[in-house]
C-alpha cells in the first residue's frame, strides 16, 4: 500500500515536470477555458455564414457552412497559450486544415507571403502565410466533441496553436492574402507582430 503512495507520488512529480516543460516562459496552467473578447459575440445564422480566401489571389474562393463541413476533418490535440499568461494543455479540436483550403486558391507564392485573418465585426490578426501552412493551422468548428461554443469563437475560429492565442481569431470569416504585412487589431495596439510564446513575444519590441 505504501508502495502505491510512493508510486503515485513519483508519477505526480514526473507529470508536473512534463507540464512544466510544456509551459512557455511566464505562463501558468489553466484548467478552465477563459473567455477574452474585444467585441460582441456574433450570431450569424449558419445558412448566411461563409468563409472566403481573398486578397492577392487569382480568384477569391468561398465555402459556405455545408461546403466547409464536407471537407476532410482533422482532430488536432494541442496546447494553447494566451498572452494574458494562461496556457491550456491538450485541447481537443475538430476542423479543416488551412493547407487544404489554400490548396484550392491560386496565388503567387513568391510575392504573397502574408495573411490577415478577418472575423465577423472588426477583428483582424496578421500572420506570415508560412505559419498557416505545413499542418500548423486549422479552421475549427468543434471543441471537446461538441460544436464550438460562440463565446469561444463558434461557429468557427482559426487555430494557430504555435503562436499566442490572439492569432487564433474567433468568429473567423476569411483570410486575406497580401504581399505586405498589415498589423491587425491587437498588433496595431502595441502587441507583438508575430507572437511566439516560446520567445515570449508579447509586446512590440519584445
Amino acid at each position: 500500500m505504501s508502495g502505491g503512495f510512493i508510486s503515485r507520488g513519483f508519477k505526480g512529480r514526473r507529470q508536473q515536470a512534463d507540464v512544466a516543460g510544456r509551459l512557455p516562459p511566464g505562463q501558468h496552467l489553466e484548467s478552465g477555458f477563459p473567455v477574452l473578447s474585444a467585441g460582441p459575440t456574433p450570431n450569424t445564422p449558419l445558412d448566411q455564414w461563409d468563409f472566403v480566401v481573398t486578397g492577392s489571389v487569382k480568384a477569391p474562393k468561398r465555402w459556405n457552412w455545408n461546403e466547409l463541413l464536407a471537407l476532410p476533418h482533422e482532430t488536432p490535440t494541442v496546447d494553447v497559450h494566451c498572452v494574458t499568461k494562461w496556457s491550456k494543455l491538450d485541447t481537443h479540436w475538430e476542423g479543416v486544415s488551412v493547407d487544404l483550403l489554400l490548396r484550392e486558391v491560386e496565388y503567387d507564392s513568391t510575392s504573397v507571403r502574408y495573411a490577415t485573418a478577418f472575423s465577423e465585426g472588426d477583428y483582424t490578426t496578421n500572420l506570415p502565410l508560412a505559419d498557416l501552412l505545413g499542418g500548423k493551422a486549422w479552421v475549427v468548428f468543434g471543441y471537446d466533441g461538441q460544436p464550438l461554443d460562440p463565446v469561444h469563437g463558434g461557429p468557427a475560429r482559426l487555430l494557430v496553436p504555435h503562436l499566442y492565442f490572439w492569432k487564433s481569431a474567433k468568429w473567423v470569416r476569411g483570410l486575406r492574402l497580401t504581399e505586405q504585412d498589415q498589423p491587425g487589431f491587437w498588433e496595431s495596439l502595441g502587441y507583438h507582430n508575430y507572437g511566439d510564446p516560446w520567445k515570449e513575444q508579447r509586446y512590440s519590441g519584445d
Binding site: L36, A38, G39, L189, G190, Y191, Y203
Partner: peptide
C-alpha cells in the same frame, strides 16, 4: 469590453470601436 489584453469602448448603436486602449 475589458480584458487582460486591453479595453475596447464600443458604440452602443453600431458596435464600432470608439476607443481602444492597451496598457503594456
Amino acid at each position: 469590453y475589458v480584458s487582460g489584453m486591453g479595453t475596447i469602448v464600443r458604440c452602443p448603436s453600431c458596435d464600432r470601436a470608439l476607443i481602444r486602449i492597451a496598457r503594456l
